[in-house]
Amino acid sequence: MTTPGASVDEILVHTGALYNHARYLTGGDVEAEDLVQETCLRAIASADSYRPGNCKAWLFRILRNAFIDTRRKRRPEQPLGELDVVEGGDGELLRDDFELERLRGVVAEDIQSALAALSEDARAIILLDLEGFTESEVAELMSCAAGTVKSRLSRARVLLRRRLREYAR
């Protein structure tokens, strides 16, 4: 007896979240649509990798792999991220209350611009955290050790705040 896994309907439940993530990763509507469609088609074809119970995380992992594949075809020489080479912490951002006031005053356009200016890895980990995935889920999605997710996320957030300092003036 076989047990049906991710049906089309189950996949479609998550296409809204997939599209939002794809849109921020690619920066364009057409590219996001292509990426989501590729993700869903791979999902249907990837029966062996499906594990019932966490369809959303499974789909996001497929999306990430599809994105990396597409990205490598277009720009094979460019690395995905800068998260392992972030210098310094956030000390310079915390010397006074300006940082806090700035964050409270940023508007949607500021955040979008700052996020878009980050590396793809930094952008991805912030969005995955915002999407509500656990550390272990993010680790699996990004093919890294669970122990590094926290530090990578922390560095990505510092980078985002640095960008916000530049955009939110």
């Binding site: 076989t2 047990t3 049906p4 896994g5 991710a6 049906s7 089309v8 996949i11 479609l12 869903c40 088609l41 999902a43 249907i44 074809a45 990837s46 029966a47 062996d48 499906y50 594990r51 019932p52």
Partner: peptide
């Protein structure tokens, strides 16, 4: 997706 075929198996 409907054209690509229904369900994936775990």
């Amino acid at each position: 997706l409907a054209a690509a075929g229904g369900t994936a198996r775990p």
